[in-house]
Nucleic acid binder design. Structure first.
Lengths: 209, 209
DNA sequence: CCTACCGATCGGTAGG
DNA sequence: CCTACCGATCGGTAGG
């Protein structure tokens, strides 16, 4: 009588070395798929960049499709994590300004990761797509809530929160197409976008109470 | 002694039927590359959608790369044409609002064309890329001028015109990733984006003079 | 019995 | 606009 538990058997947790190697593969995969696209970028390219043979990648991956999924999961997890970091900002205006700055900095700092995330989305397998979409919906919903609270506070005109959330996300994410780290400064870009949406910062009032 | 003129020889202009067929191929190519991506979308797919054999496409195209270029040229030409149509709007605020509405409507109306234009840009051959980039620079420059004139008129806070131009283009172009014609209305989206950037429309003043 | 690989080759499909 | 092909390279898997 088989005594194995249901689900995939896993006798031990993956070793730290294994996790580390997988992270390298994901990062290299993002670079290769950024440079050549998902379909034209081969697993041979990924392996060569790591000084490995392609077959060795299959110790860490079930398929090329799964590598793309890992890249997507890293991007959306990073985005959600950044949102968590700013959860304690109470002022709606400052929260929206910080969101814009975080988004711009994040995309500017990880161009390969987010280029693949934004451009290769239609190449993601359906099963993986469903999982990413769920996390992304939560993300857009949290952005919409931040926009809504800024509108409620009178910092924005009354707007459709979902449309405005996509507007803010589009404005900031789009930098992956034109941002040049030599010429452009992320914080200056964020300032421009913040003043475009929120107008000029009002002069600080005398501390109340 | 050869008597041919310099440049590419062309005995006759392409016939209207030829032009028509080429337009169909470009439109179908945009659909195929939208659905499957440029690398995974084959010329057999394009031909089959037109009830042709792949080899027949080579009467209209030199290469698959050239088909992608034709798609890009169509997208940027359409964008520049829309800009020309609004050249006679004198009021800076109205000009910027019209720009936003045009951009949103255009992308919403031609999702395949602009999805390929935005997502498959890195797949464009270097020689073609140079030509498209030149036209795109002119396009961004004209957007920046519209933004600048709105800022000069006091309708926007003082901003870096190039950064702000990319912000407006990103906000509006991004809809190709989320716009759902069943759920979303282009004009309502444009209204949200306009009021986000320009604030509430001031009540119309009594006609001067 | 495990891990982390290697050299070689499979069936299919691509652009031209 | 078609039939009949080519040189090349792909993702994935075999035994060891």
């Amino acid at each position: 009588m088989p005594r194995r538990r249901p689900g995939r058997p896993r006798l031990t947790e993956p070793s730290p070395e294994y996790r580390q190697r997988l992270e390298e593969i994901i990062e290299t995969g993002a670079q290769v798929f950024h440079d050549r696209g998902y379909d034209a970028g081969s697993l041979d390219d990924v392996a060569a960049a790591l000084d490995l043979r392609k077959a060795s990648l299959y110790h860490y991956l079930r398929s090329k499709a799964q590598l793309l999924y890992f890249i997507f999961d890293r991007a959306i997890s990073l985005s959600l994590q950044r949102l968590d970091e700013m959860a304690d900002i109470a002022d709606p205006r400052e929260r929206l300004a910080t969101l814009i700055a975080h988004q711009v900095r994040m995309v500017a700092e990880e161009p390969s990761l987010f280029s693949v995330f934004f451009d290769q989305r239609p190449r993601l397998d359906d099963a993986f797509e469903a999982e990413i979409r769920q996390k992304e919906r939560a993300y857009v919903g949290r952005i919409a809530a931040i926009v809504q609270s800024a509108a409620d506070a009178g910092e924005l005109p009354p707007v459709d929160a979902r449309h405005a959330a996509h507007a803010v996300l589009g404005m900031t994410s789009w930098i992956y197409k034109w941002f040049d780290p030599v010429r452009d400064d992320p914080d200056r870009v964020a300032e421009t976008m913040t003043s475009l949406v929120l107008g000029q910062r009002p002069p600080p009032s005398a501390p109340s109470r």
